[in-house]
Nucleic acid binder design. Structure first.
Lengths: 104, 104
DNA sequence: ATAATAGGCAACCAAATGGTTGCATGTCAA
DNA sequence: TTGACATGCAACCATTTGGTTGCCTATTAT
């Protein structure tokens, strides 16, 4: 879980996921295209995404194809974000109560 | 948005949010309690959470009260995670197709 | 008034991060 | 078979990060 959060913390990596979301199964060079980064930098980002299981790859000849795996993202939504949605109204009303208390 | 992702990338910070979720409106010292970190380290984490608008604070006398703001978390769920949920089945079936292609 | 309490500020440090360059390897096409 | 192409590996670098310690300020309680 921590690896996924860490992987998502970087804007470049999120944009790589975006690109794979737009077009799945791209090669490394395809993913580098138009980015203001060297290929090696992209490789590192992809390795982190792969370690977090957000991207699955396999070789096809001399090319390495990258596939988006949306499962970890979905899990974050289910296991983590949903927890905080429940408390939403309570939290805000408590805050409001406190803010009003300030003027006493 | 980037600030929120970055703020959520650290396990200590997520645990602080958890604590606030369990009990809202805690003071700094309350939040430090039981953590294997100095107060100053916690202060820094809280400052990052505050900058990302995940935590709202105000002073009450000599105490600083911390309140959870679940809105940014909710937005990540809405604006970011939901986008990837749509492509889920497609992505997996495409991957399966490619994996089968390997044996040709 | 004074001591204890709650928090803030700043300097410092080691390790992690995001990036680079240079070179090596494996695969395909002419 | 040889050159071009796709990727991998490793060393190196600057900056950011997560943490520390030491000291200062503000508020409360005795």
């Amino acid at each position: 879980m921590d690896e996924v959060f860490k992987a998502l913390a970087d804007a470049s990596r999120r944009s790589l996921l975006d690109r794979l979301h737009a077009k799945n199964g791209q090669t490394l060079n395809e993913l580098c295209d138009g980015l203001a980064m060297t290929r090696q930098a992209v490789t590192k980002h992809l390795a982190i995404l792969e370690a977090a299981n957000l991207v699955t790859t396999f070789r096809h000849g001399r090319e390495k194809l990258h596939y988006l795996n949306p499962v970890p993202i979905h899990q974050i939504g289910e296991r983590w974000i949903k927890k905080f949605e429940r408390g939403k109204l309570t939290a805000l009303s408590e805050l409001k109560k406190q803010l009003e208390k300030r003027d006493e």
